[in-house]
Design a protein around this nucleic acid. Structure first.
Length: 115
DNA sequence: CCATTGACGAAGA
DNA sequence: TTCTTCGCCAATG
């Protein structure tokens, strides 16, 4: 199963993010979000784990630790903007494997700001 | 084998 | 939205 998680995460393009629950759901395992999280903890180097966030769009783990902070930096480098709360808008950055890549909505949704 | 914990999520308060 | 409780599954003690 974890291989399927990795495959799906690899399919996520730069500047886009998916929640653990979303990944689990697309794998056909809606209740196994934690398993996905653990799989990402084991994430091979070829898997862009930084594109997988929790359902609030914030980088999981303790930001005081290196890994989490680095993940956030990489996301910002890919164009993902974080607010003061350390969160990003899943409504616009959230990527569905079957969805068309369109950044138009992205900038527009950004204008809504907080909430 | 049983008890805790955890890169999670949804529902209740 | 934030906090708590419950559920869920795997890893760890």
């Amino acid at each position: 199963l974890n291989e399927r998680v990795y495959a799906l995460v690899r399919s996520v393009p730069p500047g886009r993010v998916m929640s653990y629950g979303a990944v689990a759901r697309h794998l056909g395992a809606p209740g196994k979000a934690r398993e996905v999280g653990w799989a990402m903890h084991q994430c091979p180097d070829d898997v862009p784990a930084h594109r997988v966030l929790n359902r609030f769009g914030e980088v999981s783990g303790d930001l005081t630790t290196s890994g989490a902070e680095i993940r956030r930096v990489r996301l910002e480098a890919e164009g993902v903007l974080f607010d003061e709360q350390g969160r990003c808008d899943l409504g616009c950055y959230g990527w569905l494997p079957s969805s068309t890549d369109d950044g138009t909505t992205l900038a527009d949704a950004r204008d809504e700001g907080d909430r």
